[in-house]
Each structure stands twice: as structure tokens, then as C-alpha cells.
Write a protein that binds this DNA or RNA. Structure first.
Lengths: 343, 343
DNA sequence: TTACCTTGTGCAATCGATTGCACAAGGTAG
DNA sequence: CTACCTTGTGCAATCGATTGCACAAGGTAA
């Protein structure tokens, strides 16, 4: 059953030439005559020859492998990015090794070390929430390998990046709510000071400012942006009798929590309170009413990351520090669209 | 910046021994003296030595890589399975190469060939919907590599499998609806004759039979189980004035379509029509009302697949043909739970 | 005819880890 | 003292593809 794979030596001895000749014939070296080349190709096909990439990798130092590190694999956002990277990589005959950090720095470090040992040709990664220093990432760069960060990035590393314009996304979302006539817009953000959430908060604040709407700090809630956080914040708004006519949350889960509590309290959406989330999680189109949200184009992010990666590989002059910023899109659904627009 | 990696030769020359001795010391060969071993380990640490897995792979024929082939990466079900496999594999110091087939046989074949060239130690895969023969999978087995199929499997290949008990899941779902007092239960199934859907249909039919409920073929609809199919089937039920008091669909998407149409027609859920889906897609808990569905435990499926895989690797006697059947769980949510149970 | 170039192929080292066999030093039994 | 065993290392081949250099055969120009 275990039919041995043919090697270039098998082809060589079949034809009475040496392995060098076969190797050159297969790689298109011009010093090989047409006759020999034809014979080699024919024999290769006959013997069902497939190159041993391991041997090739050992010699050339190139494994055709990309190490991909994400916080959580089974989140729509991340798996879509994997898909995007995959699409580009496979076309160029690269394979993608996937691993997850569970947001933990120690897992990241272990995975990156494993990637180095597996001699990947480079790494595409998103930084875990609990990561506090970047030495383990720096090691990748020190090894001379391309590193591309996406979504959760850092300016501490001089390397390629793909992010969305979080500020712009939040700004668009908030302006949209303002245009729907909302004036008391609550915002749910993250407790931890992570870049993307800070930017979303800034976008929210600037949008209010630009429209001369007073900022009420009591309407800003910091939590973990999970469903339960959204529920808690919303309950607090209601219990404290803080007037509000919209919620813009930095995550779809948090805004979903708001929707649940509002419905329980028979507060109508969007008429009394309009809702906009962030992420475009698949569930947002299935809620009642469907949730307005911000699309981050994760597949495109993945493709962009892969493109920077391959640019880095090809360029002789070190690692690309290219930064691609993807424009987010506001998806307006019923949760924020009032029947009569009064803008 | 590109600090060369230390090799066993570097350690050897540092200590005035040969690479063989270093190799043996590192692998725990008993012929090496304690002194030498200690010195080697110390020098290895000092030089920051990490073994080159490519070289090792070339010599040993083992790459510590698992090729994983799924129809679509960014579907919760599949990404959760990847996560399960990943968890088990990483602990055993294996890495997972992920690739998607987009349900197409030609992509499957190309990916499997790429896996073989990358010299993966085996393959874990789910068969694409459009795949009609299995020669490309057979090649994996012919190469003597372990192959484990999950969810979408076939009896044409003698190899390990992990599936859920689709029949049982459908049976449970249908019985649950019967217990809620439903008697006219519609079923949405797949047009294509795929095993898992046939079994779900059988479970539905047997549950009805076992409860002496007449089977009405007009209540069974075959489509593609997408949202739009669910909408179409439901509209047809209503337009043709076929009485029905429940829908059990073989996919959450299809049942979601039913929910939308029912709500548009002001038909109350679950009182007039109860709903149960299949898959436990993340969105099902966020709909209004939340959807009852069948949990397939995808992470556990992934872990089980990995376990069979490693069993196969370890056993000297050929590929494991173990088959693990996972018991699905009925998740009862508001879409099917009537206020007063009349069972 | 000589010096030199072109074309096509072979030789052998290389990538780094692994391993069967050889062998030296020292110990033990008879 | 001899035969043999044990312990610890070294030597060299191996995995398969790649590549710098050598070199033979034939051609060309002077």
C-alpha cells in the first residue's frame, strides 16, 4: 500500500543521467537541452513524480508555509480573515498554518516559537487582548521573517499592518444616529485601553462635537463589551432614569444586550431608542429588528494582509512596513432607521 | 538582524565533540554520559539552540503537520471543529495546516495533493457537497497516511470517522414538537441526497410514525436549506393553505426563513407554529424568539477527530477505522416551547 | 592549427538531524 | 595474561533537492 514516492534520482537512473540534470530540467534551467528536458518531463510523469518539499525546504530555506496566529479561530471575524489569507496564499502555492492564542501572551509566545521551529516563511497575526509586551513578535522580525499584524496591532513593532479605520467607523455610526434625530446617544466601550476601542470612542465624541451635541460622560459605559455588559449598562441607564434615545456600542454583542433589555422593558426600537453596533457579526441580520452595524470587511482584511506579506517576501530590502487602512462601511438596518427621517 | 540559528554542529564544535554526540545527548540516548549530556544541554541553552524541524522531517519522514480540509472556514460549525482539532494537536506539538474546498471536488483534489507534497503526517477532512468520487482521498490512504473524516463522510473509504447521530437529533427534535402538541409538522430537507440530510429526514419520519401521526408528504420540502429556501417553503405552506403547526428544518438558516415569513404574516411563534432548527448556529440564540435547535458539539467533534488521528499514528497496524458517533443535544428555546405543555 | 567560447552534463558539497557500525579505553572473569 | 564485555564517542551515510565548479565535445575566429 505504501507506494514509495519517486525522487529525482529515480528519474535520473531511469534515463541514465544524474540527479543534477533532472533537477535542472525540472526547474527550467536553460543549460539543459530540449531533448533531455522532454525526456525528464516524460519520465517524471510516468513515475508520478512529485517534488519533496521538505528536502527542497531544507536546501532552500523556504517552506512555503505562513504561520497565522489569531486570538480565537471560531469567531466569524477571525475565521473570515483566515479565509481571506488562505485564498491569496493558496493561489501562490503557499499553505497556512493556523493557531490560536486564546488572547494569552504565553500561548502567543509558544505558538510563535513553534512557527519558527517549523521554519515558516513568515507570520500574519493579531495581538491577544492580554498581551502586554512584544518581544515574542520582535523575535520573528529579528529572524528576518516578514510579520504582518491585522486588526489588533501595535506601533511598538516596525512591521506591516492592516487595520480598519475605527475612528471613521464610529464617526459614521454616530453621525447616522444624529441624522436620525438622536441627541442623547449612549456609548458602550471597553474597559481595557485597547487602541481600537479608544479610536471608536474618539470617533463617537468627535461626531457629537461636530454636530454641537453636548457630551454627557454619564452616557459612556466601559465594560467587556459582551452581551451581559450590554445588558448591565442598559439596565443602569434605565434604572438611573438617564434619558437616552440611542446606543452605539463598540461591539455587536454589547448592543445585542441592549436590545434584549429594551425589548423586555417594552421600549420600542428604533423609535424610542435606536441601536448601532460594530463588527457585523452574522447574527446581526437575524435579530428583530435587524441590527445596524459597521462592516469591517474581514475577508478583504485577510487578503490585504496576505498582499503585504508577499510584498515583504519579494522585496529584497527588508520587511515591509506598509500599513493598509480599510474603510469600514455603515450597514443601516431597522434598529436605527426611523420611519420618517427628520434630518 | 538575521542572527543565524545555532545547529547541533555549533554546539558540537563549542564542546569539541561531534554532532552525533550532541544529537544523542539531546534525544536522551542512554549511551551518552551524564557529564556530556549536561554540557550539551548547557551549551544548547547558551547558544539559544532550537532544532530545525525541516532537517528532522527530512530524515525521519515526520513533519508534525496535520492537513485539515474543510468546505468553508468561516462557518461557525467548521471553525469550531478546527479549534477542537487545534487544541488537541498543539498539546502534542503538532501544527494544523488549514485549507478550504469551497465544496468543490477539484479544490479538494488540489489541496490534498498539496498536503501530500508538504509531507503532512495525515489528513482530517470533511467532504464537499459537490464531491462525487473519492479517489483523491484514497490517495492519502494509499500513501499510508491516516485520514479521519468528520460530519460529511462516506462509507466508500475505509478510514476513521466522526459523525453526529443525525437520525437521533432529528428524532429528538420531532418528538419534542409532538410533545408540545404539534400534529402537522412540516420538514425542510435538502434536495441533494446527502447522507446527513437523509438521516435527519428519517428521524423525523420515524418519530411521527412512533407517535401514530400520519405522514403528509405535502409537508416535506426539499431545497438548499438556505434562508431563502426556508422563506419559499413557508410561503408555499401558507399560500396553499396547508394547515401546519410546526416546522422542523434540517438547518438553522432554513428555519430562520420560516420565522421571518411567519412574523411578516403575524403568525405567532410558537403558539400557532413552533420552530426547531439544526446546527446551533450562533445566531439562533439572538433571534426573537430564540430558536430551538440541535447542538452538534463541533469542538468535541474536532477533538474526537484528533484523537482518532493520533490513535492511527501510534498504532503500528495500519489506519484506524474507528467510528465515533456523537450524541446531539436538543436545545429548547422559546421558538418551540408552548406556555402550557399538554403532553 | 591554435586559442577560446558555447553548450550540456556530471561531480560533489550542502542544508541539519539521525543512526548503524566501528572502535578505543577501561573493567572483569577465568 | 588473555578473551570478552561495557561504556562513551566518532565516522560516515542518509533523507531529496539544489548549485558552484569542472570538464568534455564541438564550434568559431584568427
Amino acid at each position: 500500500m505504501n507506494q514509495k514516492k519517486a525522487t529525482i534520482h529515480d528519474i535520473a537512473s531511469e534515463l541514465g543521467v544524474t540527479a543534477s540534470t533532472v533537477s535542472r530540467a525540472l526547474s527550467g534551467n536553460p543549460r539543459i537541452s530540449q531533448n533531455t528536458r522532454r525526456a525528464v518531463l516524460k519520465t517524471a510523469k510516468a513515475l508520478n513524480y512529485e517534488p519533496n518539499q521538505i528536502a527542497s525546504a531544507l536546501r532552500s530555506g523556504k517552506t512555503q508555509l505562513i504561520g497565522m496566529l489569531v486570538p480565537i479561530i471560531n469567531r466569524s471575524f477571525f475565521s473570515s480573515i483566515i479565509r481571506g489569507v488562505e485564498d491569496v496564499a493558496n493561489k501562490l502555492d503557499y499553505r497556512v498554518i493556523v493557531s490560536q492564542s486564546d488572547e494569552k501572551q504565553e500561548n502567543e509566545a509558544a505558538t510563535l516559537k513553534a512557527f519558527l521551529n517549523a521554519r515558516v516563511d513568515g507570520v500574519i497575526a493579531s495581538i491577544g487582548k492580554q498581551t502586554r509586551d512584544f518581544d515574542h513578535y520582535q523575535e520573528i522580525l529579528d529572524s528576518g521573517l516578514p510579520l504582518v499584524l491585522f486588526d489588533r496591532t501595535t506601533s511598538d513593532l516596525q512591521t506591516g499592518q492592516v487595520v480598519i479605520d475605527d475612528y471613521e467607523g464610529a464617526y459614521k455610526a454616530t453621525v447616522h444616529l444624529i441624522e436620525q434625530g438622536c441627541r442623547r446617544i449612549a456609548h458602550f466601550t471597553a474597559r481595557r485601553k485597547i487602541d481600537i476601542y479608544k479610536k471608536r470612542c474618539l470617533g463617537y465624541l468627535d461626531a457629537l462635537r461636530d454636530h454641537n451635541i453636548p457630551i454627557d460622560k454619564k452616557l459612556i459605559f466601559a465594560g467587556d463589551l459582551q452581551l451581559s455588559d450590554g445588558r448591565r449598562h442598559t439596565a443602569e441607564l434605565i434604572n438611573k432614569q438617564l434619558p437616552f434615545d440611542a446606543v452605539f456600542a463598540a461591539s455587536d454583542y454589547a448592543v445585542m444586550g441592549a436590545m434584549q433589555v429594551l425589548k423586555e422593558k417594552k421600549i420600542s426600537i428604533p423609535d424610542q431608542v435606536a441601536l448601532v453596533g460594530f463588527l457585523n457579526e452574522p447574527f446581526t441580520s437575524f435579530t428583530d429588528p435587524p441590527l445596524s452595524t459597521i462592516n469591517q470587511f474581514p475577508m478583504e482584511m485577510g487578503k490585504a494582509a496576505a498582499r503585504i506579506f508577499f510584498d515583504s517576501l519579494e522585496s529584497e530590502r527588508g520587511i515591509s512596513e506598509q500599513k493598509i487602512v480599510i474603510e469600514p462601511e455603515l450597514i443601516v438596518r431597522a434598529s436605527s432607521e426611523k420611519r420618517k427621517t427628520n434630518s
